[in-house]
Write a protein that binds this DNA or RNA. Structure first.
Lengths: 141, 141
DNA sequence: AAATGATATGTAATAACATAACATTTTTGG
DNA sequence: CCAAAAATGTTATGTTATTACATATCATTT
């Protein structure tokens, strides 16, 4: 894959291609302070006509492809991309607070470099990295 | 948690405390070249009397507590600890080949340091890190 | 307007991963 | 030995994710 594209098209308009379900899913993620599971999203969108998990998973797949949403593998949950960290590059890491469930998306170029070199040292063709830090955030420590 | 204990006790004997199920589960993981899901382990141990997922999950929990087994969050699968990388410290990272499914456990002290500093910079009390690199190994590239 | 092709959506069923609750047995240490 | 703690067995259930197939929507061409 490599770094994904920026979040706006050449007209400056944000994501004109987002379909109805994709927009609904994105909106609940943006509105949420914590990561959401696919089934939580499903429940939140019952009133909008969602009936089955696949409606959520398909929207999530597309949003992840666009870099608008990320999956937290250690939680089996999803977060909206925090624009500032992810506009240009794949996010380097997520800091996840075990108390308040807040998630901070980090774009650390040195970390990305380090992981790239680590892979290169082992002749490993790196495609994707998962870096998730668990602990307590500043407010909850 | 912090760094886990070495894998042998003060007598030099390896893991005298391992119970029957724990030993069975550990043995199938050690024998496997690829990570195994809990249900794969269950299937492999049917002949040994395993009947239910909990028998596997309980053994895995204990083995993880002892640092003998690690979970790969991005695969929902488990691997035996590769002794050399993990004897003293928490493993820093896993390199996972998407072709041959081989997993390499890395103990990179610089990476651990970098993640520690990253957390400290954000006043984040770090408890546990998940670092999983996906791509193609040397042989499969 | 009708036909086509590509993409998106709806729905049911099932697969895959994980835990709760409770009874029983085994192990450990005084 | 005996009581406490740990481990085990078993059933049921909860949670996360995908397969398979039907239908709808939209842009393009005929």
């Amino acid at each position: 894959m490599g770094p994904h594209l920026p979040h706006a098209n050449s007209n400056g308009e944000p994501h004109p291609a987002l379909k109805k379900n994709q927009k609904l899913v994105r909106d609940v993620l943006v509105a949420s302070s914590a990561p959401l599971s696919a089934y939580s999203i499903l429940d939140l969108l019952r009133d909008e006509g969602f009936r089955a998990p696949l409606q959520v998973y398909r929207a999530l797949d597309k949003l992840m492809e666009l870099g608008l949403v990320h999956k937290l593998e250690s939680l089996n949950a999803f977060v909206a991309c925090s624009h500032e960290a992810c506009e240009v590059n794949e996010p380097a890491a997520f800091m996840i607070c075990e108390v308040c469930e807040s998630v901070r998306e980090l774009g650390d170029i040195q970390l990305a470099d380090h992981l790239g070199k680590l892979a290169a040292n082992h002749n490993f063709a790196l495609k994707h990295t998962t870096v998730e830090l668990h602990g307590r955030c500043k407010n909850c420590a």
